[in-house]
Amino acid sequence: MKRYIFAAAVAALCLGLFCSFPSMNDQVQAASTEKITVLNPMGTPPPIELKPMAPRLDTIEGKTIYIVNDGYPGSNILCAEMQKGFSEQFPNTTFVYKDKRGGMGGGDQALWDEMAEKADAMIIPLGH
């Protein structure tokens, strides 16, 4: 008998839950064949602004390439190794290591100005 009472209580509880949310109950009831129309929940993405890439180099021979550390942990070690290792692999190219001020998200106008004057290209490791 106790088991029946328990089952009845559970059934009553379930019924109560569904009765509390008529929308869910309605949708469960309608789940089989009735077609309903629902709204798209997405927000609006920003338009993509297309920017042309900087002109490419015809060769890296004789050129100066800056390798810029943006401050993420380990990026300084990677950039230093790139400067050394790429100099070994491409001895006719000058690789310059630089630390960017302002952390990962900030700009460094002084460095941008320096590169505009002295660099032919830049490599910057980004992210994590």
Partner: peptide, 8 residues
């Protein structure tokens, strides 16, 4: 803006 179909 909308989608139509059965609940499932």
């Amino acid at each position: 803006p909308t989608y139509t179909g059965t609940a499932a």
